[in-house]
């Protein structure tokens, strides 16, 4: 996503914006006072009656809400090729990471040399975050982004080691790679699993893959946890057409608006009062999870950490991909945290 130099911001109307949460300060838009709070719009739309409290809390920075969430994506989803799983005799969803890797061993012995498919640097960060989530649990994971977050704990080291092991089962990717080729590997049967956000559904659809040819489940160990990222719209300060901007925000935040928007985009509404009937199968299950699971924020998509922090994490992960030195990975992550947290 391109980043506008701050001072050009105000010329634009509402723009698509990765969700700033309490722990973050996306590109400093809030601290530079380039966007204004939209709490009134949220209230007009129905406030906590229609948006999960969890989500609104994550949207709040210094007691004000700065954006209207339009759609939610889930990041901790495994997409799998059912044929490959059947051929390897795998019938059950693995309960945790170790069981999952045991399944990958089985698949490898059946001739699929890369059971897990991976893409460029940001997809690696996404995989790592799901491993962290699985190893630390939802509370432990969320605690990482607070001022007391301990990135050098035994659990984080374990997560790093498991991530290292997972990479052994993955293909060779390069930093600049995008995600579709990795998902394509699952579609083509060259890999069994791909951890990707739910925009992957669109890839399956575009390749005309039958619904029973692929399956999906939360990353082993993260069942009951919804690792979210949201797109949301903000209101810039000094907008040339404030009434029009607010109208747009009201539209995109309304039930009808979110229904139309999300059907087109393949994500799920941020509102809880949109009927799931018209949504395809995956979205229905996702909406169900979103309403009932514990919600945590995604690192890779800028929901849990600021951009600067994410940049350092990405560098650490990119460096690790070449060196495979878990000790350095952990210390780099800890250094990034101490530089940016609190």
């Amino acid at each position: 996503m391109q980043h506008l130099p701050g001072f050009q911001y105000a010329e634009w109307g509402p723009r698509l914006h990765r969700l700033p949460t309490a722990a973050t300060e996306d590109a400093g838009y809030i601290s530079k006072q380039q966007i204004v709070p939209v709490g009134d719009v949220i209230e007009d739309l129905g406030g906590t009656g229609v948006f999960p409290q969890n989500l609104l809390d994550l949207l709040t920075v210094k007691d004000a809400i700065y954006s209207v969430p339009s759609n939610i994506h889930r990041a901790n989803v495994v997409w799998a090729n059912t044929q490959v799983l059947d051929d390897a005799g795998i019938t059950a969803v693995p309960a945790d990471l170790d069981a999952w890797m045991a399944d990958m061993e089985t698949i490898k012995s059946k001739g699929v040399s890369t059971p897990l498919s991976i893409g460029g640097a940001w997809t690696q960060v996404q995989l790592l975050e799901t491993v962290l989530l699985s190893t630390l649990g939802a509370d432990g994971y969320t605690a990482l982004f607070t001022a007391d977050g301990d990135w050098e704990s035994a659990e984080v080291t374990t997560a790093a080691e498991k991530y290292d092991q997972l990479l052994d089962y993955a293909n060779t990717a390069s930093d600049g790679d995008d995600w579709p080729p990795a998902t394509d590997m699952v579609i083509d049967g060259k890999a069994a699993y791909n951890v990707m956000g739910d925009w992957a559904v669109a890839q399956f659809a575009s390749k005309d893959v039958a619904e029973d040819a692929y399956s999906y489940f939360p990353v082993p160990g993260t069942d009951g946890v919804f690792d979210f990222l949201a797109d949301s719209f903000t209101l810039p300060k000094g907008a040339k057409n404030p009434a029009g901007c607010k109208d747009w925000l009201m539209t995109v935040g309304s039930a009808e608006g979110q229904l139309a928007f999300n059907l087109a985009k393949g994500s799920i509404p941020a509102r809880t009062d949109v009927a799931p009937d018209e949504f395809p199968a995956y979205q229905k299950s996702a909406m169900d999870s979103f309403a009932n699971d514990t919600i945590v924020a995604s690192i890779a998509h800028g929901a849990a950490v600021s951009e600067a922090w994410l940049s350092d994490i990405t560098t650490a992960v990119s460096k690790f991909y070449g060196s495979r030195d878990t000790e350095t990975l952990v210390s780099d992550l800890a250094a990034a945290a101490s530089k940016h947290a609190g």
């Binding site: 980043h3 590109a27 460029g120 930093d175 600049g176 600067a308 940049s311 560098t315």
Partner: peptide, 24 residues
Amino acid sequence: IAGSNSYTAEVPATLMWIQLFPQS
């Protein structure tokens, strides 16, 4: 080729972009 944040392919010019934008 390498994207906007690649450690492996980093040179001073790309590092500058990172310093200016994500790292502000």
